[in-house]
Design a binder for these strands. Structure first.
Lengths: 180, 180
DNA sequence: TTTGTCTGCGACAAATTGTCGCAATACTGA
DNA sequence: TCAGTATTGCGACAATTTGTCGCAGACAAA
């Protein structure tokens, strides 16, 4: 890239997976973005207010505050910011919430740099293909858990009680990625 | 309900599953809504323009045009309409799209009337369903299995394949009653 | 009859859940 | 600020549930 660094579009990458950030930020820089990395929402917020980015990639599940907070902050600061949510624990409940808060797209890991960059752009997916298959039982369970969890503001104990399920079991389920 | 029919909040229920509509519309009427049912997007659209509803429940997978079209029409006609998407073929991609088009919530079947009403937004009927207990995971599983089983005309092997579940396990589950 | 699929069920290993407990944090109301 | 309470993230082990394999009978189509 021969472009002056300051002319490049600014991009904030917020994810607490260090190696993932290294790989992805390099790939994004190759594509012409001026990347800033933050490994937690707490670290990202001051950067946002000091220097609102044009693009942002946010992981929802970071240690500490949820990425949803960051999305809101980004959107409040500059409604034109293109925000892509990228998470390994994708669920419909959090997707709905993220989009409502102003996210542009919602992808689940793993996703390569091209897919992410692509997600910044078009939103016109007119002909979306519906799944031919009904959701698997485990997927359904995952979605349901995520929804109740959100209704309980992320309180695991309360969620376990509401679902009449043992806290230990819920913990274990939450630890796994949403298979299938 | 002693309320005059015209004073009740209007609700459009768009789903091509006839029995499902019957059950749900009755449950919704009990909760005070003036329910109108449409079994396809084509049938629903004229109703929307003629008489924009305050609430809507839309299935995405209907014969013919996708429910996404209806969502857009509803939102274009009256941006204040509270739209809940309800589908048996839930996916994150369609959820994202539906919310962007103006849907309020996105639920996957099975969902009971309380959960749906709740999804319209706590603000509207704040005092109503505070203690709405979410269905237990096993209940959800039971209903889902029954639905898929019916789609497969009671064929256990095919259902097990569709649900990506072992036939033996499905058999065992079917042997039990729908425990809470 | 042969072939292919569906079904019910026994048996046993593999995996998941229920339970109990503990130490490290939050959170809350004097 | 401090005690009291709730939450959280585990480890460990027993109790249950699933995954797997296999087999025999039913049924329909070729």
């Amino acid at each position: 890239m021969t472009m002056d660094f300051n002319e490049r579009p600014s991009l904030l990458l917020a994810d607490d997976d260090v190696t993932f950030c290294q790989v992805l930020s390099r790939a994004l820089e190759k594509r012409g973005y001026a990347v800033t990395v933050a490994h937690s929402v707490e670290l990202a917020l001051p950067l946002v207010t000091a220097n609102p980015p044009e693009f942002a990639i946010v992981d929802l599940k970071m240690t500490g505050v949820s990425g949803l907070v960051l999305i809101q902050a980004l959107h409040d600061t500059d409604a034109a910011t293109r925000i892509v949510v990228l998470t390994g624990y994708a669920s419909i409940a959090t997707a709905v919430e993220a989009i409502k808060l102003g996210a542009t797209q919602y992808l689940s890991k793993p996703a390569n740099a091209d897919e992410i960059v692509n997600a910044f752009g078009h939103s016109a997916n007119a002909g979306l293909a519906l799944n031919a298959q009904p959701s698997s039982v485990s997927r359904l369970e995952w979605e349901h858990i995520q929804r109740v969890l959100q209704e309980n503001q992320g309180n695991i104990s309360a969620t376990a009680r509401a679902l009449n399920m043992h806290r230990r079991t819920l913990q274990r389920k939450l630890g796994k990625s949403p298979l299938l």
